[in-house]
Design a protein around this nucleic acid. Structure first.
Lengths: 221, 221
DNA sequence: AAATAGTTTAACTAATTGGTTAAAATAAGC
DNA sequence: GCTTATTTTAACCAATTAGTTAAACTATTT
């Protein structure tokens, strides 16, 4: 009966992980890449062994089975993006600054951790059924933070009232599509110059959302 | 040597399809659902047989192999959404009306054909490598149409200049995330009432994009 | 109605895949 | 240094999976 190294995160586990965690960490790293690239079913354990240089039974020793490996992967992945966003938002002062920081830090971290948009989009496509609760909670933490930003901005009279879910989908959706489309866009070198950079997307996205929040309502024609 | 029914779309083929196309059509229908729900690798041919009530060899007779079935599925799927959008845009008069129609008709059709957002998101997650050319072309047609809308609006002095790719990702990304998240949101009945409807999303999205296109630039603070 | 071409069927196969096992190797505790 | 617990290894297995085959069946043409 193997005792799984990542089942708990107690002090004892962490001490042990320092010496033994190399293998588990490497598995997690390659698994993240593969799950993002190929999805759950598309990820083959034998290939994971080959790519990571880790023996198959070691993977099963550390993670139990494929689905638990997937769960660990996703939880780590989403936490790695959500944490810095929430931290940065907490440090910003005004709702407008918090909103800007939310978009910018999410964009930067999702772009660096580009497996995250891929995995998120796959999970949405599957109806989120296989999404582990801790991973889902990270997304809900982001949504909750955005809710606070928007409502406090509204209370202070600087923002118009908007639906936070729509706004989150605008931010997350736009950026996930942009980040994940990078390989496709790179494949067309002729238009490479015409494509916007991440910074440009962030600027336009921020401007767009801000303008809707700050400007008066547009009349229907 | 089987001659695949969908390899050509001549008049003769179409006449024949009327009598023999029932099976192929049914395969395509269930394949669409399954590819959207489970992805390429997650879709098992035996299960497709079982769900569709069609024998396995019939599938291979009509479509050759799994990847060609996938290609047919995606091409049909994207065409079904892109065509009505482009048609509606062509009928609208002003750039502003065209933009509104673009968002609205895309939203309605993607929502009805909800396999399309799912498949699109998966393809983006995979880097679009497996996306068949005809399917990709449908997305490019949409992007091209949007480019024209934005540039003609700009030339007429009603729109500010913006990057069309960003705008397309805002529209498509927001709506795909919203549409594909429906099962997840349905799973939380407590918040059901709080969730916006598709119409509400469309309204907010349209307003947001319009306000950025029409309003003067916001100064940095 | 006979011949031909198109379509569907059930049974089969070769290869892949997630997961196991027991032994070898390494590290930790005493 | 010896014992014990943890970790890694290679070989193995049962189940699944995409794809095949050849025969049966159904229309179409002449």
């Amino acid at each position: 009966m193997p005792k799984h190294a990542l089942s708990l995160d107690t002090a004892a586990t962490r001490v042990k992980a320092k010496k033994t965690g190399k293998t588990a960490q490497r598995i997690l790293q390659i698994a993240t890449e593969m799950f993002a690239e190929k999805g759950f079913e598309g990820t083959i354990m034998d290939e994971l062994c080959q790519r990571s240089g880790v023996n198959k039974a070691s993977i099963y020793y550390h993670f139990g089975d494929k689905i638990r490996l997937y769960d660990s992967t996703l939880t780590h992945l989403f936490k790695r993006v959500a944490d810095p966003v929430l931290q940065a938002v907490a440090q910003a002062e005004t709702p407008l600054q918090k909103l800007r920081v939310f978009i910018e830090v999410f964009a930067r971290n999702a772009s660096q951790t580009h497996a995250m948009p891929a995995v998120l989009m796959r999970e949405f496509a599957s109806g989120g059924i296989h999404m582990p609760t801790p991973a889902r909670e990270q997304m809900q933490r982001l949504l909750f933070a955005l809710k606070i930003i928007l409502s406090s901005g509204h209370q202070q009279g600087v923002f118009k009232q908007t639906d936070p879910l729509t706004t989150q989908f605008m931010i997350v959706g736009t950026l996930c599509f942009f980040i994940s489309s990078e390989p496709m866009r790179e494949a067309i070198p002729a238009e490479k110059k015409l494509d916007p950079t991440l910074d440009e997307i962030v600027i336009q996205l921020t401007r767009t959302i801000e303008s809707a929040l700050l400007s008066p309502t547009i009349e229907n024609t």
